[in-house]
């Protein structure tokens, strides 16, 4: 008994699959090797889906611009910001972040000499591939470089 769905799926058979493909077709035996090959241009990978303008990805922190006002700590719903009293800067744990960008909204930023407007210390980047085995890995903690050097 032919139904409307049957015509629908026969039409879909002729179209291109809608699925976004994985970067490579099969899981590689060695990921680092694959990355090296991609960098050398030996292997082509399917690029990730582009994100639109204004996308809220991983939070980027610029300690140079941070004035230590602690407003971001006040509004952060997930308590992802930690105050580093020794440096009067903040430390941000991406694994706790819920990407609401409230901290970006409140950040007053700092004006360097010669600049017309203050630039915010916090901004949303377009990076969204954040999977990691360790929630405290370097990629998932944004902090001033001195904090790491001094081990605070």
């Amino acid at each position: 008994m032919p139904t409307k769905v049957m015509f629908l799926i026969l039409k879909q058979l002729l179209e291109k699959p809608f699925t976004n493909p994985f970067p490579v077709k099969h899981a590689p035996k060695n990921v680092t090797e694959l990355i090296e090959k991609v960098q050398k241009g030996e292997v082509q990978i399917n690029p990730p889906v582009p994100v639109p303008e204004g996308f809220r990805g991983k939070l980027h922190y610029d300690p140079e611009r941070c004035i230590g006002c602690r407003l971001c700590i006040m509004v952060c719903p997930a308590d992802a910001m930690e105050w580093v009293p020794e440096l009067k800067k903040i430390r941000h744990y991406v694994s706790r972040c819920m990407f609401c960008a409230l901290c970006v909204d409140v950040c007053p930023g700092k004006k360097f000499p010669g600049e017309e407007k203050a630039v915010k210390a916090l901004s949303m980047s377009e990076e969204f591939l954040l999977a990691d085995y360790d929630k405290y890995s370097d990629n998932l903690i944004e902090e001033p470089p001195e904090a790491k050097e001094k081990g605070i």
């Binding site: 879909q12 994100v51 639109p52 809220r56 819920m98 990407f99 609401c100 960008a101 409230l102 949303m124």
Partner: peptide, 24 residues
């Protein structure tokens, strides 16, 4: 099929608000 059609509104919401879900 329906979820394929749903992608468009999710992409639109991502374009307007910055994320596909949890629009903030």
């Amino acid at each position: 099929w329906t979820w394929k059609g749903r992608e468009k509104v999710l992409d639109l919401l991502e374009f307007i608000t910055g994320n596909r879900i949890n629009y903030s």
